[in-house]
Every structure is written in structure tokens, then in C-alpha cells.
Amino acid sequence: MTKKSTSKKSTRSFKIEFIEESDNRIMVLLRNIPVTMANSIRRVIISHVPTLAIERVFIFRNDSLMNDDMLAHRLGLIPLTTPLGKYALPEEAPDEEGSKPEYAELTLTIEAKDKPITVLSSDIKSKDPDVKPVSGDIEIVRLAPGQGIEAEMWAYMGRGKDHAKWSPVSVSVVRGLPVIRIKKTGCNKKCKKCVEACPKGVLAVKKGQLIVKDLYKCTTCGLCMEACPDIIKVSIDETSSILYLESIGQLRPIEILSLAFDEVIKKLDDFYSSLNEVSLENV
């Protein structure tokens, strides 16, 4: 942020702290960032981070009970691992020479022989080893003996704003950082009413001291404050936000986060250049 501000708080530098990180989820603390900005990142994560998903399905044979359109819909919803930068984004021109491929090709050819079978996402064959279903156990349809499916699928890059199948996350939430202030004097540390009142188990008494055990579990519901209004005060730190997201599996959570920042910057650049055009016209 290079913009000058009169308030002292926003001149402090922006910082990211990782609270929790695993294969499919991430919780980060965004320090010294306005809530509106954190929220725009949250929204961009849901609707603007590009991923691969099956968009076109050519069905040559479908004897199953499921109609072609229903089958295509289910195939589209299967999340695919997305190699970053390998396939052209929807806004990139695909005609130029040396450009990225527009789509990934996948095929599904299966027939039930003697007994009924369940078609799983692991039956989908991909021409590109980098593109494959995130989970191989997703049930697509069931086939009776003699029934079969033959289909070719094209997976395109896309964004969640066009269809939810391109959204890389199931959860993307921003909330304020809770601040729990405990007065040191006046608490007898024995009644434990505040500890029992908290549905999330945030507070605890340890070694005769009332402490905050897990601050990030606090939802700022204020039940502990109601139980003991003289000692405990719960509020929200307006300058920091907690961002929590859960990946579906196409991208790693950390990739989603960095792509979201790129997308926000891209949007702002677009806005800035279009603003310049307008102001030049007016002169």
C-alpha cells in the first residue's frame, strides 16, 4: 500500500501469519489490512481463481439409466488436478502460434460384462498425466450387464463465477480477530462459569489462572461475557482478519491464496487503465 493515509493504523505494514495448514485447508491471519480488502480476497477465491473442469462431453454410447445431460453434469462436477499455467485461461487467445492448449482430453470407455458395476472416476483415462480426477472413488453411474458408456471429454480452464464446478474451494471465510480481555483482579478462578459457558472451549483454568486456551476457536459469541461481565470483555480487532479456506483438491490451498492475490491485482490494474482512458477522453 503506497497510498497515504491520515490514520496511523493503516500505515503499519501488511503481514500474513499462518495459523493452521494442511493438505486441503489453510487458516491465515491477515494483519493490518482493512476488512473490505480481506473480504475482496475471500470473494475472489470463490469466484475468480481459475481451475480445470470438464466442460464439453461427447457421448458416443450411453446405455445407462442416466440421461446424457445428467451424465455430463456429473462428469463436469468431478474435480480435476490443475497444472498451473499449462492450459489457456478463458480470456487468453487460443489461435496464436505457440500458445497454450485450450483444453485437456479425457475419455471414458466402460462396459459391464457379467454383473452390475459402478463406474468410478478412476475409470476416466486422461491423455495428460497432470490432469486426473482428484479422487478415484467418485461414483458416476451404475451399469447393468451389457450396458456401456463411451464418451470423450474436454476439460477447460474456467472460473467459479461462470459455474461452481470451477470454484477451487468449498469454504472461504473471513472473520475479525477476536480479542479476549481478562481482568487480573476480581476473578476467584473457582466458579468456572465462563469456562462452562463457552461452547467452543476457548477458555480454561490452568495453574490457578484463567487463560485463553485457543483464541482462534472463539466466535465472539459473547456467552462468557454474559456469564461474567465484570471480568471478561470480548471484542474484535478491526485491523486484522482471519481467512480460512478449504480446498476441493484441484489446487493446493497456498496456491489458491497466491492466485487470489494475483487476480485482485489484475482486476485493479484493469480498473486503473480503464480509468485512465476515460479521463483522457474527457480532456
Partner: peptide
């Protein structure tokens, strides 16, 4: 057949 995704949040449930 079980839906591929959760209707509300979009998490994959078709494999579970």
C-alpha cells in the same frame, strides 16, 4: 446415485 458434490458447500461427497 449419490450426488457428486454437496449441494450447499460444494465439497466432494460422491466418493464417501
Amino acid at each position: 446415485m449419490i450426488p457428486v458434490r454437496c449441494f450447499t458447500c460444494g465439497a466432494v461427497i460422491g466418493d464417501k
